[in-house]
Design a protein around this nucleic acid. Structure first.
Lengths: 324, 324
DNA sequence: GTCACCCTTGAAAGATATTTTCGTTTCGGT
DNA sequence: ACCGAAACGAAAATATCTTTCAAGGGTGAC
């Protein structure tokens, strides 16, 4: 039989080859995915003893049963293959195979529905799987919050300034320093002149060189990092266009910022330093800036991106993926 | 009867002398339920044309494909049964039957949780607000995929190694270099000895100093970056425990990795270099490692974290945040 | 430019799993 | 106790999945 075409009755309706069978023309009842448990409860009373055993086993442990073959399930329930198939039929499936598929679906649903305390904070004895889930969850939320809270007008202005800048300085220390470097790398890639001094003193020294038309961008979560504020202040006073990426729109750094981009943050805790989620939102902002600038300077950015890709190719193992 | 014919893993070409092949990172990976889409994206590049067709079909329409037999799917994708089975294997399942089960599960999950469609690619003339929305959406998805696809056993092993390491070297170049630095910063914060050499030559020089009990971790999206593979190889041969964080689980770098952590990636395009989403997933992995290590070494990590927080305080503007 | 080699691929043979058939067993009623 | 009918399972019949094998196609070496 053609697998999916089979209908309970032996009536061989000759579902012609190919597997069209679009929802089996409203005939019997399309098998249910999550309604399976209910169906078992409903039909159980009218079942024979053996069939009940099968039905119960299936409802109790969908995941486990989905992993079994007819034979396996028959064995586990102390019945025969025929009984298992009969039960599947009674539950509304063309055969065991389809019941099994539904079982897998049910298991997946149950599994995904079981969101174990994603909202709790990470604790010392969380199993690693929970850590992964919680971190991912929080970072996703941070991203959503940041995107929602970004002022597109400010962003647009910042992009305009960056795209037109003669040169750009990006300041950041510690974790934010990496974000600064990230932006710098990206801008360089599309042929813009950018620099992220790592040393606070160098940063100030650099800032002194800026002039109107240049851009200085500061990345700082707290907005109060002296080592970052200082060069931005200098740049500001020199007449450069200044941009601040910070999580605290009321912090000192904003005093010297022409354009302010606010990042959202997630709760922090002992095991999850603020640096973690702030970095995520900072990077999103930086990515937006980059894409925006790339759009504005598309004519030069596109070839530059392509070129830098090419240039790196030879640094890769010629074979790409390993033979086997 | 045996259903899952546990064929011994595909002959992992033995790594060069010096050390036996990495123990096939703690057995293959147990098939994943919702991580399937992610896995397809990750593995697709390294697939042959026919296999890609199958993989894409499966990822595009899980529900539809779950209803098909091997033969049916082969027909639909214009390939052969053999190819379908091969693809299933590549995706981490023992055979097609299991892939099909996973497909059914995925379909059920998707059905229960509808997702809107922000699926278009970023174009040159997207308004900035759309850029923000699309970037955020994609990064969120990348995070979910990465979390779903992370092998917690591998992660756990990596954490154990890191927590016990005498010293840790982290290798990475370009965008991945920033991720390497991020991890290094974090480890240093909790009192572990970590180092992220920026210069490839220095990296190799460092690697030579490693010995059993030390850890070397490589971050590379492509898995084929020679400048990163080389130091990892050296570390591997020196007997250090090696960890690879890569988006290509079949790439050369895995030859020298005791533990393999796979990152998911999002579609890339002209305006969105691969570096962008790979960085996001790499950081998630790195965060997980960090939190895991912090848990293991809580006794020393907690005070260290507190201390580093204190030490930085004076670098902040004395006034702290401005009154709201 | 040509050749050899290896990867890719599908056809068909070989295993397994599922479904059906059919005879035996069980149970209730008279 | 006997009859009839439903329940049940063993095994045959069929479908599906897996593996093997040889031909096709592309690539690098020379």
């Amino acid at each position: 039989m053609k697998e999916t075409s089979g209908r309970p009755g032996g009536g061989r309706s000759a579902a012609p080859e190919g597997r069209s069978a679009p929802a089996s023309p409203t005939l019997p009842a399309p098998p249910a995915p999550g309604a399976l448990t209910a169906k078992v409860r409903t039909l159980a009373p009218s079942m024979t003893r053996s069939m009940q055993r099968v039905a119960v086993a299936v409802a109790d442990d969908p995941a486990g049963c989905a992993a079994l073959t007819v034979t396996g399930l028959a064995e586990r329930t102390g019945t025969s293959e025929a009984t298992v198939v009969r039960t599947a039929r009674l539950l509304g499936y063309p055969g065991y195979r389809d019941l099994r598929l539904a079982l897998a679906g049910l298991a997946a649903q149950q599994h995904s529905g079981r969101a174990p305390a994603l909202t709790t904070d990470i604790t010392v004895d969380d199993p690693i799987a929970d850590v992964v889930a919680k971190l991912a969850h929080d970072e996703r939320r941070t991203l959503a919050d940041t995107a929602a809270g970004l002022d597109t007008a400010q962003l647009d202005a910042a992009v305009t300034a960056l795209a037109a800048a003669r040169r750009t300085d990006v300041y950041g220390i510690g974790a934010s320093g990496l974000v600064a470097q990230d932006l710098t790398q990206k801008l360089l890639r599309i042929g813009l002149l950018a620099h992220a001094p790592g040393d606070p003193h160098l940063a100030v020294t650099n800032a002194v060189q800026l002039r109107p038309g240049d851009v200085a961008l500061a990345v700082t979560h707290s907005g109060s990092t002296a080592d970052v504020i200082e060069p931005l202040r200098v740049a500001f006073e020199r007449g450069a266009t200044t941009i601040a990426v910070t999580g605290r729109p009321d912090s000192p750094v904003t005093q010297y910022a022409d354009h302010l981009l606010t990042t959202a943050t997630c709760r922090e805790s002992e095991l999850r330093p603020a640096a973690m989620s702030s970095r995520t939102s900072q990077l999103l902002v930086v990515d937006c800036l980059f894409v925006g600038v790339a759009q504005r300077t598309y004519a030069t950015a596109a070839p530059a991106l392509a070129a830098s890709y090419e240039a790196l190719a030879h640094r890769r193992d010629p074979r790409g993926a390993r033979p086997r």
